Amino acid sequence: MSRRRKPDWLKMQPPSGREFTGIKQTLRDHDLNTVCEEANCPNLGECWSGKNSESGGTATFMLMGDQCTRNCGFCDVDTGGGQPLDPDEPANVASAVAEIGLDYVVLTSVDRDDLEGQGAAHFAQTIREIKQRDPSILVEVLIPDFRGEEDLIRKIIEAEPDVIAHNVETVERLQQPVRDPRAGYEQSLAVLEQVERESDIYTKTSIMLGVGEYDHEVYQTLSDLREADVDVVTLGQYLQPSRSHLNVATYVHPAKFETWRRVAEEELDFLYCASGPMVRSSYKAGELFVDAVLRDGKTVEQARREARESVAASD
């Protein structure tokens, strides 16, 4: 089957610029992976070029190797596992953060079902290393589901990041084939509910559109997430990484994404919703919102407005 032709609103400029080159070199020097590269993120050029950040670029560090034990239909990260964890990685990430000069850091990881503890302690140690170097740095983590094991999720909570994200990815009906069979809708909701129940940490999740969902299913998913007290949601267009991945069912128009933003914020009362074709889980708009609320003490409405204006200025 031939791949669908992308509409004009999905065309991106190739990454370039001094900040982009500098961040890439720093990551290589510290032998670190980023989800930006491994997952072929379409915003890599924007984020690494630092268009929206006075401190320069940003990057989402991917912990625990570049091979995932799961095989999701949408994801471009290699499937594998079995690699030993690098005990120096937490300190190396903290060093790279300082060298790049970030004041907002995003950490994620591959799934490591092959490890005892699934790497939760390693993840938590990376958070602590960054915070110990500079407590003013805001740390957002995008965590696996850790198979729903509450003790492992609690390790992340106890490391005290500023935001804990976990992606539900799609509507309940499409969890498979979109996600690996070891993942699941109720399990992901339970992860987010635990964070809300056991901490005051902001929670965040992401939904891909264009994989065959219906509008009423998107609305139900948003409603379920608010029932779980999730604070921030992002919605973006699924883009097929290769012919061997899940096909794109439809390219959703930007106006539809704006409709979902209004539903999320104005009807369902999420603190913030970043919604657009190129929005991804670790997206500048979400970071800008959280930074404005936590660091600058802005009201939710002020933070929403400033995040939207900043992103619009870069388009």
Rank of each mutant, 00 (worst) to 15 (best):
V290R: 07
V248M: 15
R305V: 09
Y104S: 07
G212H: 02
Y219K: 03
L268V: 01
L268N: 03
I130V: 14
G45C: 03
Q83R: 14
S223Y: 06
P7Y: 07
N52Q: 14
R280E: 09
D88N: 12
S206P: 04
K131E: 05
V252E: 14
D224C: 09
Y202E: 04
P254F: 08
V232C: 15
R154V: 09
A165K: 00
N52V: 13
T203F: 10
L192P: 02
V263I: 15
Q187T: 11
E172N: 13
I137L: 10
Q13T: 06
D180G: 08
G80R: 01
R28T: 10
T234N: 15
N52Y: 14
E116W: 08
S55Y: 11
C36R: 02
V105H: 04
D66Y: 06
P277G: 09
L222F: 01
S136F: 11
D103K: 03
K204R: 13
A312C: 12
E150H: 06
E140Y: 12
Q132S: 08
V139K: 11
E267C: 04
I153H: 01
V232L: 15
E227V: 05
M64V: 03
S310Q: 15
T250G: 13
R173M: 07
I201H: 11
R4C: 14
A94H: 02
G81V: 05
I143N: 06
D113S: 09
I127K: 04
L209Y: 02
E198I: 00
T170G: 05
E38P: 05
N92V: 06
R182L: 10
P84W: 11
P135M: 14
P15I: 03
S242Y: 07
V77T: 06
A190E: 10
D291W: 14
A98W: 02
R4W: 13
A96T: 01
Q220E: 12
V218C: 00
R197L: 13
L288S: 04
Q67T: 13
L225Q: 00
D200Y: 12
G286D: 12
F146N: 00
S188I: 00
W48L: 15
A159S: 08
G17Y: 00
S281N: 14
T205R: 04
D31N: 03
R179T: 06
I127T: 04
K204E: 13
S244E: 00
E266R: 00
A94P: 03
D113L: 09
A98C: 09
S281E: 11
G17P: 01
E37W: 07
G117I: 04
V178K: 02
D29K: 06
S206Y: 14
P161G: 09
Q132P: 01
Y272W: 14
R133G: 15
V218E: 00
E172W: 08
M64S: 09
R305T: 12
C41A: 11
V211Q: 02
S2H: 11
Q83Y: 15
A312F: 13
E46H: 11
C75I: 01
L268S: 07
T69D: 12
Q132E: 07
D66W: 05
N43K: 07
D88W: 13
N52F: 13
G65V: 09
A159P: 03
R308F: 10
I201E: 12
W260C: 01
L85V: 01
A59Q: 04
A228D: 09
I100A: 05
I201A: 10
D231E: 03
E267V: 02
